[in-house]
């Protein structure tokens, strides 16, 4: 009888226990990033810009170069690195508050300049680390600590769809929205991440993967419930799939 390895800890994932809550999407996304970076052989030329927020500790887990950014400024910091060192693959890891509230300007303008960088945009519809406040991506009616009666359109507006907004910005080449709430979606997410990195390797322009990610703690749900909630509620506002793909056009 031979033993075949069908699953192992990714090489680039440090041997350390995650501090993330049970059911949180960050740990899955971290693992996927490690796998992709390893498979694409990028460790020696990749720099990650992690955000303030729950994933500020990403440097405890991913065994790659990392430089912390101020809240929202990831795309500007990535721009600085990439312009100095064009051969480096630079990606930001940002939450919804980071990328779609305080960092809207940095993100849109970096994309518009066609910066050759990648954004991994983790959308969990709340501010996680600060305790579950309303985010631009919070669902209508969703209760958070700063929308205790549920998000009201006439007071707090609509969930902001950054992928769709960025899709009309000329400098973006590839944008896909995925989720990490099922094995099937996780696989798709991994594929999207490697595609986004490939866009950067090929020097085509700005790429982004928006990942719908469960936050059971702040959603006040069990992990299982939160996984279902992504399918049942979130995808209604944030439909999954490729939002923009100009890879072929850009390659010509």
């Amino acid at each position: 009888m031979t033993i075949k390895t069908v699953y192992k800890r990714p090489k680039l994932l440090k041997e350390r226990l995650f501090h993330y809550c049970p059911g949180c999407g960050h740990s899955v996304i971290h693992k996927l990033l490690c796998e992709v970076i390893d498979e694409m052989n990028l460790k020696e030329r990749i720099v990650c810009i992690p955000p303030p927020g729950c994933s500020v500790f990403a440097y405890n887990y991913l065994d790659i170069d990392m430089a912390e950014s101020a809240h929202g400024r990831g795309a500007a910091v990535a721009t600085g690195i990439k312009r100095v060192s064009p051969e480096t693959i630079v990606f930001t890891y940002q939450g919804d508050g980071d990328l779609s509230a305080i960092g809207t300007a940095e993100t849109i303008h970096a994309a518009n300049r066609e910066e050759k960088i990648t954004a991994i945009f983790v959308n969990n519809a709340v501010y996680g680390m600060t305790g579950g406040q309303m985010a631009p991506t919070t669902m209508i009616g969703q209760k958070t600590t700063t929308s205790p009666y549920g998000r009201e359109v006439n007071k707090e507006g609509y969930p902001l769809k950054m992928s769709e907004i960025l899709s009309v910005v000329e400098g973006t080449v590839y944008i896909e929205r995925t989720a990490v709430n099922s094995p099937k979606n996780i696989k798709k997410t991994k594929k999207a991440i490697s595609k986004a990195f490939q866009v950067q390797i090929d020097n085509l322009g700005f790429s982004m993967v928006e990942i719908l990610s469960p936050c059971p703690t702040n959603w006040k749900m069990s992990p299982i419930e939160s996984w279902h909630w992504v399918d049942k509620e979130m995808v209604k506002e944030f439909p999954l799939g490729v939002i923009k793909d100009r890879i072929k056009v850009k390659k010509c």
Partner: peptide, 26 residues
Amino acid sequence: CTFIQAESEISAINMVYGASIAGARA
């Protein structure tokens, strides 16, 4: 060399931060 007219002063200083991370005089 790189010159960028940034979208704000905030972005400009953060680009400096990025360039400095990459080892440039910025």
